[in-house]
């Protein structure tokens, strides 16, 4: 991945730029999604604390919605662990892929173990786009500056959304929840041309819903491994071809 380098001048400026980038469209859209999530929790009959704790320590909306849905139908703790674990298994490859682009030599490891809690699609996509272009010491600050304000806004939005049902029609709650996958889809379409990505994205988008029809729980794991491996083999083959010619 070769990019034109970007330099904000200082780590402080990188934090600020991260916050600026987060506190525009990402915060607006993810904040709206979390309002929808807050409303959903309130309709489930749980307390506002449950909604806030979910956003705080279970950060990443698909797993949060699944947890609430499963709890609402009285699923066992084991069923919840299995389903949420399989939905969120993507976080491991996402973390592995992001780490080399936010790591630096001086930051203690414990910081990464803490910050990994904030890895989710929006912040991940933003960091994957910009961090490889930044000087090493500005990368983690940019990511931190991006995700902490974003998460704070979403905590607030969860709280506000919890108090919305009854104020907002149910259709609007649906619209708020719908914002999220549509936003993610467009974020990936916007950076679609990065090498190696289109095949993985297209195959994943086809296989994801298809496998879900047969095995909802294992669908994502199968999708990731099968579509990812095929995309990998295709791009390696192309790479070797380009090298030999």
């Amino acid at each position: 991945m070769q990019h034109t380098p970007v330099n904000f001048g200082s780590t402080r400026a990188a934090y600020i730029q991260g916050a600026k980038d987060a506190l525009s469209i990402p915060a607006l859209i993810l904040g709206s999604t979390y309002m929808g999530f807050g409303a959903l929790v309130s309709e489930t009959g749980l307390e506002v604390w449950h909604a806030l704790i979910s956003t705080a320590v279970n950060w990443a909306i698909p797993g949060q919605i699944a947890t609430m849905e499963l709890y609402a139908i009285n699923a066992s703790l084991f069923a919840i662990a299995a389903a949420v674990g399989l939905i969120n298994c993507r976080l491991m490859p996402m973390t592995i892929v992001l780490m080399p682009f936010i790591r630096n030599k001086t930051t203690p490891k414990i910081v990464y173990y803490f910050m990994s809690n904030f890895i989710a699609v929006t912040g991940w996509a933003a960091a994957m786009k910009l961090c490889p272009k930044l000087p090493e010491e500005q990368r983690l600050p940019y990511f931190t500056g991006f995700v902490i304000p974003l998460w704070s806004i979403c905590m607030l939005a969860t709280f506000v959304g919890y108090h919305l049902p009854g104020v907002l029609p149910a259709e609007v709650t649906m619209g708020l929840v719908f914002l999220n996958p549509v936003y993610f889809m467009l974020v990936f379409l916007a950076d679609f041309t990065q090498p190696g990505r289109p095949t993985a994205l297209i195959l994943g988008a086809i296989l994801g819903p298809l496998t879900f029809l047969f095995t909802p729980n294992w669908s994502l794991l199968i999708t990731g491994l099968v579509a990812g491996t095929i995309a990998f083999l295709i791009s390696e083959h192309r790479f070797k071809k380009a090298q030999s010619s």
Binding site: I96, L203, L207
Partner: peptide, 28 residues
């Protein structure tokens, strides 16, 4: 192996997003 993990990550994300739109759980 890192390039493979990258492909798996993008496939997982696309699979999840497509599933959330076409076959959602929750209010949708």
């Amino acid at each position: 192996i890192f390039r493979w993990v990258t492909c798996v990550a993008y496939a997982l994300l696309a699979g999840l997003i497509a599933r959330m739109i076409l076959l959602p759980i929750g209010p949708l």
